[in-house]
Design a protein around this nucleic acid. Sequence first.
DNA 1: TATTGTTATACTCTATAACTATA
DNA 2: TATAGTTATAGAGTATAACAATA
Lengths: 150, 150
Amino acid sequence: MSSYAGAMEEADPLTDALVQSAFETIAVLSRVSAEHDLSLTLVRVLGILRDRRLRISALAGFLGLERSTLSGLVDRAARRGLVERLPSASDRRAVEIALTAAGRQLATSVAAEVRQALAPHTASLAPADRRRLQQLLERTLTQPGTGAAK
Amino acid sequence: MSSYAGAMEEADPLTDALVQSAFETIAVLSRVSAEHDLSLTLVRVLGILRDRRLRISALAGFLGLERSTLSGLVDRAARRGLVERLPSASDRRAVEIALTAAGRQLATSVAAEVRQALAPHTASLAPADRRRLQQLLERTLTQPGTGAAK
DNA sequence: TATTGTTATACTCTATAACTATA
DNA sequence: TATAGTTATAGAGTATAACAATA
C-alpha cells in the first residue's frame, strides 16, 4: 500500500456518523412498520400519498423502483383497503393511486409512532441544537430540482 | 379530530430531516453495494468484520437478524471467497467468521466509494459545520452499553 | 411508434421450525 | 436441558421481459 492509498482509506468521521445515524433511523422505521405489518417501502408509499395522488410510474420514480414492483405493491395494499386505483381523467391508460380513509389513518398513526420512537434519540439535545442539527441535515440533502437526484 | 389529536399529528422538522437523510444515505449505500454485486446487508457484514471476528450469533445480534439468515449470508459470502469460517478454540459448536484478504480489500474499497459518493452531500458545509453536524449526529446515536440497543 | 400499467417468472433476503452436535 | 449453527421451507420485495391498451 502506498501512502496515497493510505490517505484514501482514512475514515471520515462525518461520513461514519451519517451512515450510523441512517442505519439506526431505518431500524426504528422498520420496527414501527413491522408492528403494523407494513414493509418499509409500503410505509414510504403511504407517506408519499398523504398529500397527493400519483400514478404508478410517478410512484416508481419517487422510490427508485420499477413500475412492475409498484404494481404488485399497490395490489397488496389495495387488497388490504389502504389505497385505491382511480382512473385518470386525462389518460385512459393511467391510474392514480390514492389513500383510502383507512390508509390515511394508518399513515397518520405510523408517522406519529415514528416521531415518538425517534424522540429518545434527540431528547438530549437542547432546542438550539435541535434546530442546528435540522438545518445542517437539510443542507446535506439533495436539493429538489438541482438534478442531483435522477 | 380533537385538538389533542391535531397536536399529536404535528410534524417534527428534525424527525423529518433525520428520516430524509437516512433514506438518501441508504440509497447511496445501496447503489455502491449493487455496483459490487453486494447486498446492503453483506456490506454491513464486511464492515463489521473489518476490525474483529464474530460468531454467527453475534453477527446476527449486531444486525438484528436471525442466525439462520446469517448462516445463508455467510455461505454465499464464503463461496465468493470474501469470508471464512474458523473453528472456535473454546467451543466446538461455534464458528468464527473472519474476512479473507479479498474480503478485506473489497470492504476497504467499498468504504472509500461510499465516502466519495456521500461527499457531494456534505461538500457545501464549512469545516466548522461539518464538525458540528458530526458531533450532533453522534449525540443522537444510541450509546453503546446503555441498553437502548437490544 | 412510444408509453402506461400488468403479468409471468426468477432470484435474493428474511423468518420459522425442526434438526445436529456440543455444552 | 440449553445453546450454536444448519437446513428446509415459505413469503415478501425486487427486477426483467413480454404483453395489451392507449397515446
